[in-house]
Design a protein around this nucleic acid. Structure first.
Ligand SMILES: [Mn+2]
Ligand SMILES: [Mn+2]
Ligand SMILES: [Zn+2]
Ligand SMILES: [Zn+2]
Lengths: 153, 153
DNA sequence: TTTCTTATTTAGAATTATTCCAAGTATTGA
DNA sequence: TCAATACTTGGAATAATTCTAAATAAGAAA
C-alpha cells in the first residue's frame, strides 16, 4: 500500500520534537531517516543495525531513546503484534497491520473509506487517543519465508 | 462489559484441547479456572501468582505452556498492547481493548453492532483469521492508580 | 490391566528485549 | 558566554520468555 506522502523531515522534525519539549539531535534525525529509508516494520534491534551502517557510533540505548522520541512527537508508530519485540512503523497514514502468524512478517493494509475507525462503545470515563488494528492470519501468496517463524520483515 | 456467558469448562475444555491434539491436564484446567475466576487481563506472571495460591507446585514454564494451549484451542486470547508483558483475556465475546497509557490498565469495550469488524482492504494473498482492536488513551474517571505506570489490571 | 509411546511438567539455565545508570557531551536560552 | 538541562553512551541490571533434560502423566495398543 502507499506509504505516507508527506513524511516529516529536517526542520519539520525539529518542530515536531520541539512541540513536545524534545530536542532535535543528529541521532534522532538519523534514526528517523533510517526508518524512512526502508519503510517496513523493523524492531529496535533491526533499526540499530541499519543505523550503525552509516553512523557506527550510535548506541542501542540511543536507538530506544530516539524511537521513543519519534513516537512521542507523532512521526512514528509502535506496532505490538505478538510476544516478540515491539516493531516500528513510519507510515502515519491511517492503516491497519496484517501479521502473518507463520512467517511473522507485518504488512500495512488499508482501512476502507467511510467509517474508517471501528465503531466502539467507549464508556464515558475513557478518553481515546489512538486506535490500533491488527489482523492475524497467514500470507498465502508468494512468501518464501512462510513456514519458518524466524525471518521478520 | 459483560463477559462470555458461556465459558468453556470441564469436559468441554477437554474437547477443545483434543480438537487441537492437545491433552487435558489438571494444570491446564487450573490455569483456565484461574482466568475465569478473575476476568481481567493478567500477565503470565500474574496468572502464575494466582495459580500458585491453590496449586503451589505449578511452575512458571507450565503457566506459559498452559496459556499457549488455551490460546491455541481458542478459549483464551492474548492481548498485546505495549512493550510490557503479554496479557491474557478469557472473554471470548467479540470485543476490543482499551489500554490506559497512564495507569496501564486494560478494559474490555464493546464493538457496536452492525459491521462489528472494521472494513479492511486485505490483499488477496492474506488469509485473515482474527482481528485485534486496541484503543489507547487515558481513563479519566475514578482511577486511583492513574499517574503511576506500575499497577496493571 | 500392562505396556508402549508420546505429551507434559518441572526447576533452572539461557536468551531476548528493554530499561537503568553514571559520566561525558550537546543544546537551549538567559 | 555560561548555566541549566537534555541527550548520548557503554555497560550493567532487569524483565519477559524460551529452552533443556529428566521425571511424570496421559492415551493408545495389546
Ligand atoms: Mn505500518
Ligand atoms: Mn478482554
Ligand atoms: Zn507469511
Ligand atoms: Zn488509568
Amino acid at each position: 500500500m502507499a506509504t505516507d506522502p508527506l513524511p516529516v523531515s529536517g526542520d519539520s522534525l525539529n518542530q515536531r520534537l520541539a512541540e513536545k519539549g524534545l530536542r532535535f539531535t543528529s541521532q534522532r534525525q538519523h534514526v528517523y531517516e533510517v526508518l524512512l529509508g526502508q519503510r517496513d516494520h523493523p524492531s529496535a534491534e533491526e533499526v540499530f543495525m541499519r543505523a550503525k551502517q552509516s553512523k557506527p557510533e550510535i548506541s542501542m540505548a540511543t536507538v530506544y531513546n530516539s524511537l521513543d522520541a519519534l513516537v512521542k512527537c507523532g512521526v512514528v508508530r509502535q506496532v505490538n503484534v505478538d510476544r516478540g519485540a515491539t516493531l516500528y512503523c513510519s507510515n502515519m497514514n491511517e492503516h491497519a497491520h496484517f501479521c502473518c502468524d507463520d512467517c511473522g512478517k507485518v504488512f500495512d493494509v488499508n482501512l476502507k473509506n467511510s467509517p474508517r475507525v471501528p465503531e466502539v462503545d467507549v464508556p464515558g470515563e475513557f478518553e481515546v487517543r489512538t486506535i490500533d488494528i491488527a489482523l492475524h492470519g497467514r500470507c498465502t501468496g508468494t512468501c518464501e519465508d512462510c513456514g519458518r517463524r524466524e525471518a521478520h520483515a
